[in-house]
Each structure stands twice: as C-alpha cells, then as structure tokens.
Amino acid sequence: MTSVAIEQASVSVPRSRLRLTSRWVPFLFLLPVAAELIIFRYIPTFSAFYHSLTNWDGRKKDAFIGFKNFTDLFNDNVFRDAFVNMAKYTSLRTIAVLLFAFIAAELIFSIRNERVRMFWKIAFVIPLVVPRSVIYLMWAFIYDPQVGLINEALNLIGLGAWQQPWLGQSSTALGALAFIGFPFVSSLAFLIFVASLEGLPRDIIETAQLEGCSIWKRIWNVDLPMLRGGIVFVAVLLILEGLQTTEPQLILTRGGPGTSTELPAYYLYRTAFDYGKFGQACAVGVVMLGVGLIFTAISMWLRYRSAYDVD
C-alpha cells in the first residue's frame, strides 16, 4: 500500500521528514500537560522536600538547618494530637459516609419505577452544588449552643438534657466535625455506589432472587463483595480527604477547644500563613505525604488481594 501511495504522489517529500512529523506529534500534544505537571506538581514537591530542611520564612531567610524542623514537630504535642485526631476523624467519617451512602444507594436501587428512581437520584445529588464553605457555615449555626437546630430539636422532643455545646467542648468537638454533612447522601460515595449497583449484571440479581435470597442476604452476599472495588475507592478518597481537611478548622474551631480539633492540614496552613514558618510547614507536608503514601499502599493491597475481577 505504501509503495502505491508514493508512486502516485506528485509532490516529492523525503521519507525521513514524513516519519519525523508523525512520530513527534503525540509528544507535542503531551507537552502542555507535562509542563503543568512539572511546574505545579513535581517542582513544588521537590522544593518542599528541600525546604523542609531549612528555616525558610517565605521571604528572605533560607538557611539549612538539617532535621530541626522534624524534631520540633515531633516534640510539639499539638502536632502529635493532630495526627491522633486525624485517625479518629477519618475513621469516624469514613465509616459513617460509607454506611449511609451505601444504605441510600441500596434504597434507590430497590425502587422499581424508573421515573421515581430518577427523581430521588436527582433530589439526593442536587445539594452537591452547595459550596463546602457554605455547608460549614450552615453547620456553625446548626451547632449553635443557644439557637442551633440540634439543641432546639432535642429540646422539642423532650431530650433537653442532651443539649450540648457541640463545638464548645473537647469531648464532642471532633465528633461534631466528623458529623458535618450527615446524612452523607449528597456525596461522591453515593454516586459511586448507585452507579456500581446499577452496573451489577441484572441476571446475577435475578439469580439471587430466584434462589430465594432475601434482600438482606443478597446485599451481604452479593452486593457488598461485588462492590468491593467501589467501596475501597471511596474509602481511599475519604482517607486522603481527611488528611487534607482544613475547612472546619478555618471556618469553625481553629483547632480548639484545646487541641481536640487539630488536624495535620490545618496545622500546616497555620504554620505557613499565620506563623510564617514555611520551612517547618514543608516538613509537615513531607510527613503528610509519607502518611498518605502508606495509606494508599495499604488500600491498594486490600483492593487487589484475592480480587475476583482483576488478574
């Protein structure tokens, strides 16, 4: 074929030039992406690794101080508390989100009428357009100890004794933050679970039905194992999100009361922008990167260990 084409061509183009153009074009298209990745992702990451060993203040100071930043961090009880809090906050939130989003997805999945199902899917998903900061500000008022929705509701149903200053004491503050967004149906997790459930082969569901499986048995023996990929994916996202959470602290608690709502990402923000200690903030970032990598590795191992759908 190639020889025919060249015979018929009236313009003689040297073969080498032709090949050069066609081979390099894909790389030209990749160039902008590569540039963005290098400039905004890789260079700052390596820069952070370097600066974590300095006393950089964002302007003039930039002297090498070895591992001092790291030793200061590990000697700071606020930093240690932040990681303990992160473990608690992330576990609580991950379990809660997975549970409620899964329940909501199963409820939607069990609706037979196509139109009704679509209506509820849209109803659940529309609140996603509300920006997160707005959600946190709303919950500030929900948790208000005097006029907040929760305390007022408890009062109305006769459980006035259970009223608390939810954000105002160490024992409840972190849990209160983890609870923000309840019932977690307007979430990515919900969307993924609904899509995964709807993606289950219909005849498997029907087989389960034929075999006399009650809905609970089916959910436990069929839905959950087959959704494993989706569940792990959402769990990883939630864990990484917990690692990067700063909004509740910036908007609500500033890490208090005490250190009960300190989280690593907020610690980083404050160290950099309030204290001006960019070098130490880089050290925090390096630690967070390490933790994130460990979590990801564990999740990957969990996901692919004796997975039935991947070789």
Binding site: P201, D203, I204, E206, T207, A208, L210, E211, G212, C213, S214, K217, N221, V222, P225, M226, R228, Y308, D309
Partner: peptide, 24 residues
C-alpha cells in the same frame, strides 16, 4: 433458571456458586 451469561457469582468459587441457593 439458566441465563445466557450463566450469571455466576464472580467472587465465589465453583462449589460456593453451586451451593449458593442452599446456603441462603
């Protein structure tokens, strides 16, 4: 019922697939 695509539970072994209904 036997489906065109066999509808085997991909996460269960052969014996568990066969015994699925009985176990449930």
């Amino acid at each position: 019922m036997l489906f065109q695509s066999y509808a085997l539970f991909p996460h269960l072994s052969v014996s568990k697939n066969i015994s699925f209904g009985m176990r449930m």
